[in-house]
Simulated scan of single mutants.
Amino acid sequence: MTAMQRLAGFVLVLGFCIIFLFKDGRSQGNLLTGKTVYVWDFATRDGEVNSLTGNFTEEFEEALIQTQQCIVIERRKHQRLFEQRQNEKGIMSLDEISNAEKESLKSLHTNIVVFGDIYDDTEAGQLRIGISVQSFEGEILTKTSVLMPRGKKLDAESRQMAMKELVQKLVSGKDPRPSSEPIVVEVENVRFELKSCKLSGGNLVCTVVITNQGEDRELHIYLPNTRIIDSDAEEYLVKAATIGASAGSAKLVSGVPVKAILTFGTVA
């Protein structure tokens, strides 16, 4: 395979991902309005759950309740449903919780779960508090974050202000869920259609259907240069890719659709 063929494969796949992320933020409406929301325990990026992450969780939940835009399941009223999670490593996606906990969430008619992570940037002197909002099917609906001086992390008023800012960014945004129309990119007679993107074990797994509308050709996904960029300007590299039954490359027969799976690593 020539360098040009490898580059062409990279350009096709990367272009598709960029257009998906762009369209993904253009739908209208607040995604929380009228929904039942559960706020999972915030954790550090190392997976630690401690008193500080607990304070941020409670303060975020309180700020969300004050918006009166959604039904927030107050965790302290349902502690017995989630007793087994205590003293466990922090959880960042629905894919990581137990079946029993999923059933508990279902019993509370949960539509949306919010996961939070706290990154202590000692060099910059700041804390980054980020949230990932997920549907009960595991789809990432949106992500956002705020910064606060790390020297203020023990000050309750400063934390509360930061959480109010974070909630305001969440509820003032538009619904980022894709519209019902298919998300399609066509490049050099090859059609890419995004079918889904879901979290799995901290990774973002996207399914794309590829249809070659020209002559038979080879397609190669060049892993080192294939990436996505989220709304916080963070990059995530593809760690694995399959096209049909092949790993990273395949021959595309004219007119025959084939499914590709792209796995982007360590999505916070």
Rank of each mutant, 00 (worst) to 15 (best):
M1T: 04
V11S: 02
L12T: 09
V13W: 00
L14V: 12
G15Y: 00
C17I: 06
F20A: 08
K23A: 00
F42L: 11
T44I: 01
V49P: 02
V49Q: 06
T53M: 09
G54M: 03
N55A: 05
E61K: 13
E61G: 02
T67Q: 06
Q69I: 10
I71P: 09
R80D: 15
E83P: 09
E88L: 13
K89D: 10
M92D: 12
L94M: 12
I97N: 08
I97Q: 11
S98R: 12
E101F: 04
S104L: 07
V114N: 02
D121T: 09
T122H: 04
G125C: 02
L127D: 02
R128H: 09
V133G: 02
V133K: 04
F136Y: 03
E139C: 12
I140G: 07
T142L: 14
T144N: 05
V146L: 00
M148Q: 04
D155F: 03
S158N: 11
R159C: 00
Q160M: 09
M161S: 14
M161A: 14
M163F: 04
L166R: 02
S172K: 12
P176S: 07
P176I: 07
P178H: 12
P182I: 07
P182C: 12
V187C: 00
L204H: 05
L204W: 07
N212R: 00
E215C: 11
R217N: 08
E218N: 14
Y222K: 03
P224D: 06
R227A: 15
D230Y: 12
A233E: 12
V238F: 03
T242W: 08
G244C: 06
S246F: 09
S249K: 07
V258D: 08
V258M: 08
K259R: 09
A260W: 00
A260F: 02
V267Q: 08
V267W: 06
